[in-house]
Write a protein that binds this DNA or RNA. Structure first.
Lengths: 251, 251
DNA sequence: ACAAAAGTGTTGCGCTTACACCCATGC
DNA sequence: GCATGGGTGTAAGCGCAACACTTTTGT
């Protein structure tokens, strides 16, 4: 049996690494908002991050990729390990096993588990949120409309966002979050959503253009009810170079 | 039984988290060089990073602190989790169990293990390197005189150094690596050792002083065979503030 | 006296920030 | 035509990097 699924199942066979789980914070960008993909446990109203176990034969990165592909349908996504959560009281076994009794038999829970946290940046429009056999929905939620999360997943989410904010200061971000063609205001709103603050549009444009990671197309976006903004697209080669070099890139 | 010790013992009881280990990259600074604490396995000539298992009742941070205190005699050290290594082929069970057959019975090895990496910054002069029951020595080694290491420990060490170099750009470092009183050239050589490049002494001094984390004492260091440098000491309060705020601090 | 390391200031450039008006579009 | 958002340039100040000579000390 292979359990593709979630948190903390006390599977005592040798197929998976015991007491180890992996949780994914999947970020998307839509309607000017940073969103996170959450799952709701079958027959309950309890939400958590999508997660899973690690098979004996796969690496942590492979496990994270597998989980992401299952939930989003995407391959080749930007994925990064950011922290491993190992407090001995990350969750209360009694309380959790009670809440999820209809999904997971109580005796299957470990007393404690360690969870490796990954975050992913994905293109919202290309994602097909897919619940699995333990969840009956899988949905995007804005950062300001988050439900309470099971386990320590609220903390994991918050930590992921902290890491993302740090990384964005050194590396270009966007190739993974934005569609193929996008406007400068869209890109700027993405940065604003991640950083949680306003950015000056003139300075933003100057900096992005100077870095060389985007190219201005001659095409404009029509039907925006106001002046038509230009489309831009990423220069993948240059983007990769800047990503490699980490040649910083504050906004 | 509690095994305080190292990598990858297939202890099948419930005292420790199975298939999970924790490895520490302990950095010290001495004689102008960045050094790392290594252990040599008993009766062999094989070296590795000091590591250990995680007890069921302790958090990852607690486990790392325990291991560090055992090896160095220090309490209250600067310790940071940086990455979790989870490739399924991090080590070759056959080859490792062969090499360490005199220390660990072959059947005790897991097929694979996940290792959480921590690095620590410690004051070289205060450390008493202490081998444990599995190692017959525990020694400092300079970064350019490293032996080959077991498992994937060379990669872990390299990764730790990468993380340290990134962190040093945002946070003050030194309170943990330098003695209570130190000279500006000593501090500068520490930065040079970590960053692996030369620094301009005038610009360095300006930047450090401006940050306010050190205070110049009126005392000079005597007997240096040349002009006597001033002693400095850390302003712990200010240091803590800068550390918190992450108010960056490039060198 | 000599060799070696420590101490110290200035300048120019580039980067960052602050700031406001005109333009295009849909309604 | 009006409201809304998009597009764009300049100026000032700050931070960073480059750079060399004098001082002190032990031998």
């Amino acid at each position: 049996m292979i359990v593709s699924n979630p948190e903390l199942l006390a599977i005592q066979n040798s197929e998976v690494v015991p007491q180890l789980t992996l949780d994914c914070v999947i970020f998307g960008f839509h309607a000017g908002q940073l969103k996170v993909l959450l799952v709701k446990w079958k027959g309950t109203s309890f939400w958590s991050l999508p997660g899973g176990v690690v098979r004996q034969s796969e690496s942590l990165n492979d496990a994270a990729t597998r989980i992401l592909t299952q939930r989003t349908g995407l391959v080749d996504i930007f994925l990064r390990q950011f922290y491993t959560f190992g407090d001995s009281n990350r969750y209360d076994k009694e309380s959790v096993s009670e809440k999820l009794a209809s999904v997971v038999p109580k005796h299957m829970w470990y007393d404690r588990a360690i969870s490796v946290g990954y975050y992913a940046l994905v293109n919202y429009a290309q994602v097909f949120p897919t619940p699995d056999e333990m969840s009956d929905s899988c949905e995007w939620r804005g950062l300001d409309e988050l439900p309470e999360l099971l386990f320590d997943h609220s903390e994991i989410l918050k930590t992921a966002l902290d890491y993302l904010r740090k990384e964005i200061a050194h590396q270009p971000v966007g190739l993974n979050l934005l569609p193929l063609k996008f406007t400068m205001p869209e890109m700027m709103r993405m940065y604003e959503a991640i950083l949680g603050r306003k950015i000056d549009p003139r300075n933003f444009q100057k900096k992005i253009l100077k870095s060389g990671i985007v190219i201005k197309s001659k095409e404009v976006k029509k039907g925006t009810a106001h002046r038509s903004p230009f489309f831009y697209y990423f220069d993948n080669k240059k983007y990769g170079e800047v990503l490699q070099s980490g040649s910083l890139f504050f906004i």
